[in-house]
Amino acid sequence: MSALAFFHWSEYFTTALFNNHKLSLDSFLLNHSKEYTLAAMCSWLEYGVEYYFFPFVKSWVWLSRSGVVMVIVGESLRKVAMFTSRSNFSHSIAYKKTKDHQLVTHGIYSWFRHPSYVGWFYWSIGTQLLLSNPVCLVGYTVASWKFFRERIEEEEMTLLAFFGRQYLDYQQRVATGLPLVRGYEPTYRERYLLYNQ
Score class of each variant (00 low, 15 high):
Gly107Pro: 10
Gln171Tyr: 01
Glu46Gly: 03
Gly139Asp: 08
Glu11Val: 07
Thr105Pro: 00
Asn19His: 09
Tyr140Asp: 09
Ser66Gly: 07
Arg149Glu: 14
Gly126Asp: 13
Gly48His: 07
Ser64Val: 09
Ser90Pro: 01
Thr158Phe: 15
Leu160Trp: 09
Tyr109Ala: 03
Gln171His: 06
Ile72Lys: 00
Leu25Asp: 11
Gly48Ile: 06
Pro179Asn: 10
Val71Met: 13
Gly74Leu: 05
Leu23Ile: 12
Thr141Met: 05
Tyr52Glu: 04
Lys34Asn: 15
Phe147Met: 11
Asp100Lys: 02
Phe28Cys: 06
Lys96Met: 04
Asp26Asn: 15
Thr105Asn: 02
Asp26Pro: 00
Tyr51Met: 07
Leu25Asn: 13
Ser144Gln: 09
Gly177Trp: 08
Arg173Val: 03
Lys34Pro: 09
Glu150Thr: 13
Leu30Met: 15
His101Leu: 02
Thr37Phe: 15
Lys99Tyr: 07
Leu178Asp: 11
Glu156His: 12
Ala3Gly: 13
Phe83Pro: 00
Ser27Trp: 12
Gly126Ser: 10
Ser66Lys: 04
Ala161Phe: 14
Thr37Lys: 14
Ile125Ser: 06
Glu190Ala: 08
Ala161Ile: 10
Leu30Asp: 07
Trp145Pro: 01
Phe89Ser: 01
Thr37Cys: 10
Pro179Tyr: 10
Tyr192Asp: 11
Trp111Gln: 03
Thr127Asn: 10
Leu159Cys: 12
Val135Leu: 06
Ala81Thr: 01
Gln197Pro: 08
Leu38Glu: 12
Gly126Glu: 04
Phe56Val: 05
Gly139Trp: 12
Leu30Gly: 11
Pro55Cys: 05
Arg191Tyr: 03
His8Thr: 15
Arg149Cys: 07
Arg182Pro: 01
Asn88Phe: 02
Phe56Tyr: 12
His8Pro: 14
Pro134Thr: 10
Glu153Ile: 15
Lys146Tyr: 14
Val142Gln: 06
Glu75Lys: 00
Thr98Ala: 01
Leu4Trp: 15
Met41Gln: 11
Cys136Ala: 07
Arg189Tyr: 08
Arg151Ile: 12
Ser27Ile: 11
Leu159His: 13
Tyr51Leu: 12
Gln128Val: 06
Phe54Arg: 10
Thr176Glu: 10
Ala81Phe: 02
His114Val: 03
Val68Gly: 02
Trp145Lys: 04
Met1Phe: 14
Arg173Tyr: 05
Ser90His: 03
Glu50Asp: 13
Leu23Lys: 06
Ser24Tyr: 07
Val80Lys: 00
Phe147Ser: 02
Lys97Ala: 01
Arg65Met: 13
Leu63Glu: 11
Ser87Val: 09
Leu180Arg: 08
Val181Ala: 02
Tyr140Ala: 11
